[in-house]
Write a protein that binds this DNA or RNA. Structure first.
Lengths: 342, 342
DNA sequence: CTGAAAGCGCTAACAG
DNA sequence: CTGTTAGCGCTTTCAG
């Protein structure tokens, strides 16, 4: 009586349909789903009764009985900027195609991220976890409970399926290209501790420099957004000695860097070369040298792998690893000697 | 025995915890939630048992008993481009703050959009519906079933809460500004039938022109993405008589237009003025004149209003309407006479 | 403060 | 083909 405000009214149950159609609830249940096992005539009657009553089966009742949610989850650090949005787009699209609902969770650096992820795990049949959203123990705990899991843009944990974009080799390519421009003095803007991707990019970049006997700079920590890039770049560019090139962890940081350079009267690439990562839409328009990664595909693959785990023999298949290729995109911002691509 | 592969293993139930703690399931239930009503000593025992067994209450069981999902839904046309991603970001953030999980659904122009939305409705306690995702009847059907609803960037339906961004007046401002530049010959790129926002923008634009006794062009239908804008602009720009300005339904169409212009050797704004709508990141970098709208706030407001409906007296409060202000952002792309802002 | 028992709405054996 | 009957896991009266 007091809970009434919490509860939906108008809730027609299977019992009412059964009574109205003059059959049992089991028959209603079957008529509304199984194709055979029910006389056409009976089905019609049930269907009619259901329609008249405007009956909508309760997902909760059904899910509880079936022991499954028919829903997938996805966890990412945040939803700022084009990167995660694109991944999510690919994920949602593929999941919908497979007939599954999608629950999202952005941890946004909240302190209770682990609790939230654990809670999400109780609402889905499987989920993908991205980046450094939660510690490995949480991943293990969820996996141990039997929930299928796919890791995305995250370092592998135990024998879980993992999908990543290639970072190291392409970062080394980028380094080589910059060295080819004659640059020797670099700044790396990004925090390797904040994301596995950045860690790999930085490592690959450093290795690429080392291959050419150029000393690698320590990474200058910087968050992933444009403002952070702007602020960090300002600090860097105000020092007595300017670097020849600033290599950024992603495009937004690079754009912030360009803004800072412009503000200080520096020409890019004349006075300073700048590179990003992701190849977001803006990069193309401002001529930013960057690395393209297949964001949508990453999300789509994750959805499909998850589906495999949830349908096929869950424990049978071997653990899988997939590294999507990425591609260096040379534009104006890194210097113009080599003519530039596109 | 055959359903075993569908079911999670390791599923500890409240019964096992009860047995282990030597109490009844009712006590376990209470101990794990209510603060009072249970002896500290009892609570400890239960807590211990639950921990040892690694017990996680089943959301399904709980939700079914409580008669609520503790989850919200959001429906949008698609997830391409920054606009919806930003709205979603604002929505997720606010919803999480209120302790609710978020289910997303992108209709992507699918034929079974209505069915999907109806299905989503069975999984949530309330939802927000954006744009032209589903016809009014579907909205009404869901509302009638008792599920709280908030409409976002969509024309009002009956007495449902509706949140929108201002379109008409600002579009008229834009028109006035362009007329001030001396332009008289326009092309409008966008499909008023595809989105209520575009319909309003076009109407406001036309009205703004009319106020200055300038004839308004018919709208040239065009999808919402850059490629569509590019293609449409190419067609327009190849005709014998060039317009003085192309007014676009959103920024991505405008960017596509700029690309087309550039490719045809036309200078923006020298040979052709171009304007967009949304003020996405790229707009700032390419100097695109546009209109800024508070995308995040739109999503956040929707989440909060929905929450009001789901908690406070659902039927008591009056229907609400909110129109978030938008702001004309003048940049280079519309011409340089007036000095330009920023 | 705690236990027994009645559901929440639906699916799935198991018998006819 | 259809009805009966158990549950699925948890919350919540109703009695102690």
């Amino acid at each position: 009586m007091k809970a009434l405000s919490q509860t939906k009214r108008n809730t027609v149950t299977i019992y009412e349909v059964a009574r109205r159609a003059g059959v049992s609830i089991a028959t209603v249940s079957r008529a509304l789903r199984d194709s055979d096992l029910v006389t056409p005539e009976t089905r019609r009657r049930v269907q009619a009764a259901a329609d008249e009553l405007n009956f909508k089966p309760s997902r909760l009742g059904r899910s509880l009985a079936e022991g499954r949610h028919a829903a997938n989850g996805i966890v990412f650090p945040d939803l700022v900027g084009p990167y995660y949005a694109e991944v999510l787009l690919g994920y949602e699209e593929a999941a919908a195609e497979l007939g599954r609902s999608v629950l999202i969770l952005a941890t946004n650096g909240r302190a209770d991220a682990s609790a939230q992820v654990l809670e999400l795990a109780t609402r889905v049949d499987g989920m993908v976890v991205m980046g450094r959203t939660v510690p490995d123990e949480v991943i293990r705990e969820i996996a141990a409970s039997g929930t299928p899991l796919v890791l995305l843009a995250r370092e592998p944990v135990d024998d879980l399926d993992t999908i990543q974009a290639e970072n190291t080799a392409t970062a080394a390519d980028l380094a080589a290209h910059l060295v080819g421009h004659g640059y020797r003095n670099f700044v790396y803007l990004g925090d390797p501790d904040a994301s596995p991707d950045v860690a790999e990019r930085y490592a690959g970049f450093a290795q690429g420099l080392a291959d050419h006997r150029v000393p690698a700079p320590a990474a200058t920590p910087c968050a992933f957004d444009m403002d952070a890039g702007y602020a960090a770049a300002r600090t860097v560019l105000r020092k007595k000695k300017l670097p020849q090139a600033i290599v950024c962890a992603n495009d937004e940081v690079a754009l912030g860097t360009q803004l800072a350079a412009e503000e200080l009267g520096l020409d890019v690439p004349g006075d300073l070369a700048v590179t990003g990562w992701d190849d977001v839409m803006t990069a193309r328009f401002v001529g930013l040298t960057t690395v393209r990664q297949p964001m949508r595909e990453l999300g789509g693959s994750a959805a499909n792998w998850l589906h495999d785990r949830m349908t096929g023999a869950p424990r049978t298949a071997e653990r899988r690893r997939q590294v999507h290729p990425t591609q260096l995109v040379i534009r104006r911002s890194c210097g113009t000697h080599s003519g530039g691509t596109k």
